[in-house]
């Protein structure tokens, strides 16, 4: 049984390795009408850099579905795709359900402060793998951040030199240090990544000051405009927990493209 599709799928999910499961879920009406060799329920398990397991019943169909499943996997999407009996893209003979199990998205939080503890907790609820990073060993401890998956004692920009190239659109970087000494190099390094969300905490004055320093370091206006600062939605949040909610809500709104008032685009008091 160790080679069954279910066991292999479970092992991959538990190891947080990317895996996609494709299943023929419907044919053209009457199941008996399915082209020869194909049947509802046939499956193929697809993993990057590994041999596929199983088959949908036709080599050409398998080849096309493997390619599409790898695409769905890198985008983290799940849904039905339609094909002809040999994988033809513009036909609707077969409905194949492609379910992606992408590794959890990552959130990097820079700055070992109270807001970090609250944000790491809320981010875990949303399914992030959370890394807290701060160069001060006294503050960057696992005891202070029990919800973080990893606590790194280092300068944020040095951590990004290592892990930055692996970050993508699903990932987020939150700069909570609000100390220019740490902020500026961290934000500059973060701007070089492909993260879908980059936010930086601080008052409106801190934000202006940081923007000025970033410009002095050669950051272009277009790049500055991609930073969510002051971080979070304009909710009138007061406590670290409420602020954490406003940050996570901003991440959701940015991803979904909905109009929610970011502090970046409003004026006036940040806290109610």
């Amino acid at each position: 049984m160790s080679d069954s599709i279910f066991d292999t799928l479970r092992a991959a999910i538990e190891a947080e390795a990317p895996v996609a499961l494709a299943t023929i879920v419907a044919g053209p009406g009457d199941p008996d009408d399915l082209p020869e060799g194909l049947e509802v329920g046939a499956k193929i398990l697809v993993r990057p850099d590994e041999e596929p397991l199983g088959s949908l019943g036709n080599e050409d169909l398998d080849r096309v579905v493997i390619r599409d499943a790898l695409g769905e996997l890198s985008a983290g999407t799940t849904g039905i795709r339609h094909y002809g009996p040999n994988g033809e893209a513009r036909q609707d003979v077969l409905a194949v359900f492609v379910e992606s199990f992408a590794p959890p998205p990552q959130m990097l939080i820079f700055g070992a402060v109270d807001f970090t503890a609250a944000l790491s907790r809320v981010a875990k609820i949303l399914g992030y793998r959370v890394t807290v990073c701060d160069a001060r060993p006294v503050f960057a401890t696992t005891q202070r951040f029990p919800y973080a998956d990893e606590v790194v004692v280092d300068w944020p920009h040095r951590l990004l030199d290592k892990v930055g190239p692996d970050l993508g659109q699903r990932d987020a970087i939150c700069v909570l240090t609000h100390d220019p000494k740490f902020d500026v190099p961290a934000v500059i390094a973060a701007l070089k990544t492909d993260v879908g969300y980059l936010g930086a905490m601080g008052s409106r004055r801190t934000t202006e000051d940081r923007n000025r320093r970033l410009k002095e370091e050669g950051v272009a206006d277009e790049q500055l405009a991609t930073i969510l600062a002051p971080i979070g939605l304009d909710l009138g949040a007061r406590t670290p927990e409420e602020t954490a909610i406003s940050i996570c809500a901003e991440i959701i709104a940015l991803r979904s493209g909905r109009h929610a008032p970011s502090l970046r685009n409003t004026s006036g008091d940040i806290h109610s």
Binding site: V25, T78, G79, I80, A95, F97, E99, S100
Partner: peptide, 15 residues
């Protein structure tokens, strides 16, 4: 039983 598709407002996503 797996959700494979939703139309309109659905509480749970495919998967």
């Amino acid at each position: 039983a797996r959700v494979v598709d939703i139309e309109g407002s659905g509480p749970r996503l495919p998967g």
